[in-house]
């Protein structure tokens, strides 16, 4: 049997302490099992062999830190992930918001490579509401934000994206809806029409250390808090809550839940299957 590198909790503590001291980011309350595996992944990719080596490189090579952040964060995503969620958004949530004040402000917290943002703007465009929208999209990882700004999606993912899209919104005039009208293929990527992003601002923001910067009608933070432990989930949820207008909506991932959180009573469940909540108390 080959001997595998065992990363102990004390190793992780030393690593998060160094990052906190040197770079100001706080990974102390990331969920242990996924964070440990991300660390192991970085060590494997860069062939560091030990945690000590990784700590040493982080300590002596500040330019490596951005790469480290890119590898640590999880950037696996899809357009129109959970198609039924998008259908509810289109049929109920967005119309409700527009009905009340004819404008809509949206925050994609942890936007990754921008698939969710593109899904949103395409849906709003088709509803005729894109002009009414102001969208903020943030992530901790600068490289992935720059990627998202290009509106280019790997060709190999487009079959799934198209499938999700059709399954979310079905057909129109007997023809299955097709994403093709929004992009053209360039090399190995499908590049979406940049005008779709006209009302989108991409910005670097760390949910853990960053402050509340605005208020929104709809906050999407799907499959982001799963990488945090419960202490941090509580802290981040408090920030999301503060970033929402009263009676605004919050969407989390299909297998996430607010019921264990301290301020769960400040929300009501709007759709339990799709995990959409409404803020009812300040």
């Amino acid at each position: 049997m080959s001997i595998e590198l065992d990363i102990e909790i004390t190793d992780i503590r030393r690593l998060t302490d160094l990052i906190k001291d040197k770079y100001g980011y706080d990974f102390k309350d990331y969920a242990m099992s996924s964070f440990r595996r991300r660390i192991k992944r970085v060590i494997d990719i860069y062939k560091f062999k030990t945690v000590d080596k990784l700590i040493q490189v982080l300590d002596t090579t500040p330019t490596f830190f951005e790469e480290f952040i890119s590898e640590i964060t999880v950037n696996v995503t899809e357009m129109f992930r959970d198609p039924t969620f998008w259908r509810i958004l289109k049929e109920q949530i967005i119309p409700n918001i527009i009905l009340n004040h004819d404008r809509i402000s949206i925050w994609h917290a942890g936007c990754s490579s921008g698939e969710e943002v593109l899904s949103m703007v395409i849906m709003l465009h088709e509803m005729g509401f894109l002009e009414k929208a102001k969208i903020m999209a943030t992530d901790i990882d600068t490289a992935i934000i720059n990627k998202a700004k290009t509106a280019a999606i790997p060709l190999k993912n487009m079959e799934l994206n198209q499938k999700n899209y059709t399954s979310a919104f079905g057909s129109e005039g007997g023809q299955p809806l097709n994403l093709k009208k929004y992009f053209r293929d360039v090399g190995q990527e499908s590049v979406f029409d940049k005008s779709l992003l006209q009302n989108v601002t991409y910005r670097k923001h760390d949910l853990v250390q960053g402050s509340v910067f605005s208020k929104f009608d709809l906050v999407l933070c799907r499959n982001v808090m799963i990488y945090f432990n419960q202490t941090l989930q509580n802290a981040v949820l408090a920030k999301l809550h503060e970033s929402m207008f009263k009676y605004g909506y919050l969407a989390i991932g299909s297998k996430e839940s607010l019921i264990w959180c301290d301020i769960a009573n400040k929300f009501i469940v709007v759709n339990n299957e799709e995990k959409i909540y409404k803020k009812i108390k300040d």
Binding site: S34, R37, V74, V76, K255
Partner: peptide, 21 residues
């Protein structure tokens, strides 16, 4: 383990999910 999520055992007697690669 739910569809499209990895399921892990977390310290502190809980289960964690992940959408990693």
């Amino acid at each position: 383990a739910p569809a499209n999520y990895h399921m892990s055992i977390e310290l502190g007697n809980s289960i964690a999910l992940s959408t990693e690669e």
